[in-house]
Simulated scan of single mutants.
Amino acid sequence: MQPIIYLVLFGPLVKGIAPSLGPGADPWKILTPALVIQIGLFGALFVGFGTGRFFAAGEKLLT
């Protein structure tokens, strides 16, 4: 759901800067992979924060 909301909200902004990307450049081909990478990085980052909290508390992840 989150990637769809990002595309709906930020898609028109990227369309506005399309002329500066070069002739014939499709802004959706830039925005979509960038959002996938961003969501993957932040997802992994937040999982790491949660795992670090367990290690700091001295808890086991697998029992």
Rank of each mutant, 00 (worst) to 15 (best):
K60W: 06
G48K: 03
P23C: 00
A44M: 10
A34R: 04
R53T: 13
F49W: 07
R53N: 09
G22H: 00
P3T: 05
V8Q: 13
L31G: 05
V36Q: 11
I5F: 08
G43D: 14
T51H: 03
Q38I: 06
P23S: 12
F55E: 14
D26A: 03
T51D: 11
I17Q: 00
G48F: 05
G43T: 12
L62A: 12
P3N: 02
I17L: 13
A25Q: 15
G16D: 03
F54E: 14
A57F: 02
L9A: 11
G50C: 05
G52C: 11
E59H: 10
L9E: 12
V8A: 15
G24V: 02
L61N: 04
G48V: 02
I39D: 05
K29D: 12
T63K: 14
V14C: 08
Q38W: 10
G48Y: 08
G43L: 00
G40P: 00
L7S: 07
A57N: 13
D26I: 03
G52E: 10
R53A: 15
L62Y: 13
G40C: 01
V36C: 02
L61M: 15
P33H: 03
G52T: 06
F55H: 08
E59P: 00
L13H: 02
F42A: 07
L62C: 07
P3V: 02
L7W: 00
R53L: 15
P33N: 03
S20E: 10
A44N: 08
Y6R: 08
T32S: 08
T32N: 07
F46H: 08
G11A: 06
G16E: 04
L41I: 10
G16A: 15
A34T: 14
P3G: 01
I39L: 15
P27L: 03
I39V: 12
D26W: 01
L9C: 06
M1R: 05
E59W: 06
V47R: 09
P33T: 04
G48A: 14
K60T: 14
P3I: 06
D26N: 15
A57E: 15
P19W: 08
G48I: 03
G58P: 01
E59F: 07
A34H: 08
L62F: 15
D26S: 05
Q38G: 02
L9Q: 06
R53S: 12
L7Q: 13
K15N: 11
P3W: 01
V8N: 08
A44D: 11
R53E: 14
T32M: 07
I37S: 11
F55T: 11
I5N: 05
P23Q: 12
I37Y: 05
G58T: 02
I37R: 10
E59S: 04
I5Y: 06
I37C: 02
V8M: 14
V8T: 12
G52Y: 04
I5V: 13
A44W: 04
G40W: 01
L9H: 04
G40Q: 12
F10Q: 09
L21Q: 03
K15T: 07
L35N: 00
W28M: 15
L35P: 01
I39R: 00
P23R: 10
P27V: 12
F10Y: 15
L62N: 09
I17D: 00
P23V: 09
G40N: 12
L9G: 04
F42T: 09
A34W: 04
F10I: 09
G58F: 04
L45H: 10
P27Y: 09
V8L: 14
L62E: 11
L21R: 01
L45D: 11
G52D: 09
L9R: 10
